[in-house]
Amino acid sequence: MSQSVTGSTMLRRQIGRKFESLRKAAGLTMEQAAERLDRARATLHRIENGAEHVRYRQADVQQMLDLYGASAEDSEVLLAMTAATRENKNWWHDYIGSGLPRWFQLYIGLEDAASNIRQYEAELVPGLFQTRAYTEQLLKLPNGAINAGDDEEQQRAIQLRIERQALLTRFSAPRLSVIINEAVVRRPVGNAKIMAEQLHQVLKAAELPNVTVRVLEFSAGLHAGMTAGSFSILDFPRDSKGREIEPPVAYLEAATGAIYLDKPHETAVYDSIWADMTRRVLNESHSKSLIQQVAEEYSRA
């Protein structure tokens, strides 16, 4: 597999699915396995979900393989894969614990590995488009993730967001399709100057060949996104034979945590929500015109 696919996050998720498959093949529930391994159920849950902060000691991995009755081939593969996690360090690791909540680091890794990202934002400009001034306004909100009185922590959170934006212009950048609610464009965040700058930044990003931005007007009326709130759907590269190496993921974020959905019936729901909204949005040209119009209104304010 290429380095873009064997990044720590994707590797860990593949390890997790392999361990889950072996456990189930052995006829063990997570509770039974945890008891026999003398580990907490929560630890096994983190392993099987590909949590970024899990450390795979060789002795622990071998103990799991022995309990699950893994074949020599499966054992060799998992021992090699878990060893690789001890060698990888992704760029965002420096921000963990300072500007990057642990529950968000998995998303950063998935975003970094995705080939296609579909994102709906109901209230805020997407993080991949945000200006420094706009982000500074958001960090004043009492959301608990960043200490409002810690300037250094806030600056690291802002720098993280800026570094994330390099994703859109890197070699083999993902395709990013964004739908934003009209409220995102019209509701002022900070002053008029901040909003004018921010909307021009959205327009600049929309000029990239791999980025599309469309606006869901108020006049669209009832739409499926109302039942879901903001969300992202991430698709990943396929192997040389066109096979899926990582299932799509739907990501939903809250103030204190996030939900990652990757079961086919779960992602299918978000596919249908996305499809409903794409039938109601302005096209790219009209979306850009609306954003430009509102940006000019802020510039004159």
Rank of each mutant, 00 (worst) to 15 (best):
Y134H: 00
E31Q: 13
E136A: 07
K89T: 10
S299P: 09
S285P: 01
L168S: 11
A250W: 01
A224E: 02
G221T: 05
R170K: 09
S219R: 05
T131Q: 04
T278L: 04
G229K: 02
T135Q: 10
Q3F: 15
G242H: 01
P126F: 02
M1P: 10
D94N: 12
I162N: 09
Q159W: 04
G149S: 09
V281S: 04
F104K: 12
A250P: 03
D60S: 15
E284M: 05
I146F: 09
I259L: 15
S285D: 11
P174H: 07
H93I: 06
E121P: 06
R132N: 09
H223E: 03
A205I: 11
R132I: 10
Q198W: 15
Y107V: 07
W91Y: 00
I158W: 10
A80M: 09
S2Y: 10
A258I: 03
I162V: 12
L79N: 00
G242D: 04
E48C: 08
D112W: 08
T29D: 02
I117T: 01
E244Y: 03
L176P: 07
V61R: 09
A51W: 12
E297Y: 07
G50Q: 14
L203I: 08
G69Y: 02
G50A: 13
E52C: 13
A33H: 03
M226G: 09
N181G: 00
G225T: 03
D235K: 07
S287N: 05
S272P: 01
R280Q: 13
E253C: 05
K241F: 10
A114D: 12
A33M: 00
T227A: 14
I108R: 08
T29F: 04
G229P: 02
K204W: 12
L234V: 00
F218R: 03
M81P: 07
A166N: 14
A70T: 01
L167F: 13
V184H: 03
L141W: 14
P142Q: 01
H53F: 11
L128H: 01
D271P: 03
L141R: 11
G7C: 15
I259K: 13
A228R: 03
K18V: 13
R164L: 09
Q32I: 05
E266Y: 04
S287E: 03
Q63G: 13
T212C: 08
V294F: 13
K204L: 13
G16I: 15
G190Q: 06
K24G: 04
A25Q: 10
A258V: 01
R13D: 13
T227E: 12
R161L: 03
N90L: 12
L65Y: 08
P188Q: 02
S21H: 10
R55T: 15
V189L: 00
T43G: 08
L138I: 06
S177F: 08
V269Y: 13
E244S: 05
R214E: 06
W91S: 02
G16L: 11
V215I: 06
R13S: 10
V178D: 05
T131Y: 00
Q58W: 07
L141N: 10
I245H: 09
